[in-house]
Design a protein around this nucleic acid. Structure first.
Length: 427
RNA sequence: GUGGCUGUAGCUCAAUGGCAGAGCACUUGACUGUGGAUCAAGGGGUUGCGGGUUCAACCCCCGUCAGCCACCCCA
């Protein structure tokens, strides 16, 4: 006990209260995903490194993936993202699957990064994708799902927002400024960095990239134009669909949203906390080369990913994350003394068989201690049976919340508890 | 990978280079069959680890480890 082996850097221990929060988050994600008709799936947690080399950015695989050789010498990767596995799964059954696919997943991922606020090395991520159709309406559906999730967790539009842009729109605009196609990635990168640098440094950086003053000014004008979306028929359809889906209050057009990832091809979006310095909560967009990158026929897809760490921080700061989860049971059977241990276990067992989650104190210690235990574990009812109760065939039922206690006949207990638990759930 | 801050009781934190403390929690009792409240007593520490300076180090210096935060990056 003297030398504790520390946990791996960037991992988290999930104590029961943490696990309760994680499950709560999972449940919200699940409800929203199912509401839109999405099916849950998952891929392996381990993949060959080649799967990522085919598609992901270099940084992700070379710098940030956990990679190790297996006993046969193959390089194995703890999955840093799900999309390549998804691409393979779709590709393998491309002829058999019924499109459009609506798939979602929530599972662990690993990235070898320096931990900081909102970032760990082991985290959970919600992935959700609509695969097959290539339409602005499909894009709107994914954004509406993100908005629906926020709504379900109590995050109102004044706290979080989703900004949307379209890379094709931006490409057209950039071209009309007389910037060659070859510099497109540079310009995207430039736009992405706009609010991370001070204006002068940004302009100097732009000129280093070979942009003329007029072009830099042109880009700045684009970024200031909140009506730019009206020049894109796709974006007009997108916002019309979003309106129909009832998600508009969370969403606005923002020409500065580009997303770092190279594989996005059209719509891109990200959700962020409105508070000062609010970081990105989720991000996604349309990517058209999903399956062809792993060797299948081209399929278009739109989707997003949300890590559990940042959203949990945001929810916790606003007091929206479920707190104070106690024992799984609401009922504790106390043990009056050594001679009544078996009787207590029998009582608890009978209640369980009747469908009431029940814990029994496992040793005959002072009643005071058992009551305190129930209280601290968040159990509401305590059953006591000593000589007095036994003589009359009754059991004392103490309600720790209401500070009341009554005596019931042994055979009535199960039914009464089912009623009380149902009543409690209804409240 | 770069930089900053912090490591003291189970927890949150004090302590001019001079006896290592408080609150909460825990144990026991006031109260031999009843939780949260009150009171009293008690148990608890290699001050992250290793070295150095000093008569004397939680305090100063060097190293190291860990945590947090920012940069980088963001699938």
């Amino acid at each position: 006990m003297k030398t504790l082996i520390p946990s791996i850097k960037g991992t988290r221990d999930f104590y029961p209260e943490d696990m309760a929060r994680r499950n709560w988050l999972y449940e919200k994600i699940r409800q929203v995903s199912l509401a839109y008709g999405y099916q849950e799936y998952d891929g392996p947690f381990l993949e060959k490194i080649d799967l990522y080399a085919a598609k992901s950015g270099e940084e992700l695989v070379k710098e940030q993936a956990f990679v190790f050789p297996d006993r046969g010498g193959d390089l194995i990767t703890l999955r840093p993202e799900l999309t390549p596995s998804l691409a393979r799964m779709v590709s393998q059954r491309q002829g058999r699957l019924v499109f459009p696919l609506r798939w979602w997943s929530f599972g662990p991922f690993w990235r070898y990064e320096r931990p900081q606020k909102g970032r760990t090395r082991e985290f959970f991520q919600w992935n959700i994708d609509l695969i097959g159709p290539n339409s602005p309406e499909a894009d709107a559906e994914l954004v509406a799902i993100a908005a629906g999730f926020f709504e379900a967790t109590g995050l109102t539009p004044d706290r979080v927002a989703i900004r949307v842009n379209n890379r094709k729109l931006m490409e057209t605009q950039i071209q009309s400024l007389g910037i060659q196609v070859a510099k497109r990635q540079d310009v995207f990168h430039l736009i992405d960095r706009r609010d991370k640098m001070d204006p002068q440094a940004w302009e100097a950086y732009a000129r280093e990239r070979g942009l003329e003053n007029s072009q830099v000014r042109g880009i700045l004008n684009l970024l200031a134009d909140s009506n730019l979306w009206q020049q894109s028929a796709e974006m007009q359809r997108f916002f019309a669909a979003l309106d129909a889906l009832g998600a508009s209050s969370y969403v606005h057009f923002d020409p500065a949203v580009i997303r770092g990832l190279d594989y996005y091809t059209a719509t891109v979006f990200e959700a962020y906390e409105r508070a000062a310095g609010g970081r990105a909560i989720l991000g996604g967009g349309r990517y058209d080369n999903l399956v062809s990158d792993v060797g299948g026929a081209p399929v278009s897809a739109v989707g997003f990913a949300m890590g559990d760490v940042m959203i949990s921080i945001v929810l916790a700061e606003l007091g929206l994350l479920q707190e104070g989860i106690g024992s799984g049971a609401r009922v504790l059977v106390t043990v009056f003394d050594e001679t009544r241990l078996a009787a207590a276990y029998l009582l608890a067992s009978d209640l369980r068989r009747a469908g009431v989650n029940t814990a029994c104190y496992p040793e005959a210690v002072r009643l005071e201690k058992q009551l305190k235990y129930a209280d601290r574990m968040g159990m509401r009812w305590v059953l006591i049976s000593g000589p007095d109760e036994e003589a009359r065939g009754l059991v004392t039922v103490k309600d720790l919340k209401e500070h009341t206690q009554i005596q019931l006949g042994y055979s009535d207990l199960a039914q009464v508890f089912r009623g009380m638990l149902a009543l409690e759930r209804a409240v």
